[in-house]
Design a protein around this nucleic acid. Structure first.
Lengths: 229, 229
DNA sequence: TCAAAAGTGTTCGCTATACACCCATGG
DNA sequence: CCATGGGTGTATAGCGAACACTTTTGA
């Protein structure tokens, strides 16, 4: 037994950061899970996460987790909830500050972590360790809410994308269907996109390629707040 | 010096819950602050809060704080962010899970806490202890966002209220002005309100009194999600 | 030449907005 | 009787939903 050398006058919980990492494969929303190598819940899938270091804040911890699993140093990352049910970890009291991250699948390299990691369809996630099912469900809900206020969808697409891809993404996140032609017009009218060039894909006809235009977004943000999708 | 009898193999931060308690006086949004009786920041105003007990989750802790300060056992309460900058408390590392609560000022009794508590206009809050300025600002922003998704404004008004009061509240939260007559029609059209009876106030003409109708709200919630205000 | 997907137009109905108007009450 | 605030009505513009049409390209 190792020495317990950090002592306090009152009991202190352990604090971890977990990170729900979302990706988009062109059709479905994906989430990155890791297989647990140790008990409790050995062999179960879980969200990547780990203990918070004493010299970093929670967001730095989440960014660290993200980089270990995906190799990405920067990505959209957002704290959405802290989970504090007393017995959510059988070992000791653990409080988890949860984040979700949005990454471009094309930019993801395999993590340098020894743990097995895998992308799952958001609609086909197995039963998870701890209360991670709940954490994942809340992350999905928060993502759906947040997309009304910020154009965070662009974080999940390649730098250049077609309107069709953008539509599929929004349909996947919001769980609705849009009329292709109305969606097109709405995007044009918002003036958030810059057309760049033709595409040379497998499609019958090469659609236009667009980029998200952050400058335009910053202009709009101060005028009317709401982004309707 | 007291004995430090709670020991761990790794360092653990202390965890507190702070509660931003909002009220509405008919014209302005108010927030409840307490004067600190001890160092650090002795004499400064701060958000009510305290250490999390090991047998309660964070929300129970926030509810406990709320009751100590206002006497209210139930109110709308919502977690909105966790603050974890390493040096935000000079004594030791403290992580704060922050909530905001919406209460009816008429129902608030003086707290049984010894600390001096006072309601401040949200637009005239003094410099606060710790990073509580930041916490308060984020709480206001989250309240403004949340009101697009839930009719939480009703939590701040008396059970029975006039449309005028409701409009003033929404204007205070969102920081905009509405046309009186259009606001009226929108409220009628939403069908979230039940008209109850005439009022006998000091006004020139007695306006209608309304109640929020939770059943109607639950019906609507499952159809279209967005509440436009 | 045909099917599938991309891009553009048109129509209709709803609703947000900007107003005008009448009614009740207190001074 | 007039000022103030409450309740209702109306016209217009703009946008979203529904749907038709043309164009391009691969099979």
């Amino acid at each position: 037994m190792e020495e317990k050398k950090y002592c306090y006058r009152y009991p202190h919980p352990a604090v971890t950061t977990d990170c729900v990492i979302f990706g988009f494969d062109g059709t479905n929303l994906k989430v990155l899970l890791v297989e647990r190598g140790i008990d409790p819940y050995k062999g179960k899938w879980a969200l990547p996460g780990g203990f918070l270091r004493m010299d970093e804040d929670a967001e730095q911890g989440a960014v660290r987790e993200l980089q270990e699993e995906t190799g990405l140093k920067t990505a959209y990352i957002k704290q959405f909830h802290t989970f504090s049910t007393p017995d959510r970890d059988p070992r000791e009291r653990v409080i988890t500050i949860a984040y979700y991250a949005l990454v471009r699948l094309q930019e993801v390299k395999g993590g340098d972590d020894a743990a097995r990691a895998e992308w799952f369809d958001l609609t086909a996630v197995p039963a998870l360790a701890f209360d991670h099912d709940l954490i994942l469900r809340m992350a999905s809900n928060e993502l759906r809410k947040q997309i009304h206020f910020e154009p965070i969808g662009f974080e999940l697409l390649p730098k250049q994308f077609t309107i069709k891809q953008l539509q599929l993404l929004y349909e996947a996140i919001l769980g609705v269907k849009f009329d292709r032609r109305n969606f097109y017009k709405k995007m044009q009218h918002l003036e958030l996109l810059t057309q760049v060039e033709r595409n040379g894909e497998d499609s019958r006809r090469q659609p236009f390629l667009f980029e998200f235009n952050p400058e335009k977004y910053n202009e709009l943000k101060h005028k009317s707040f709401m982004l309707e999708f």
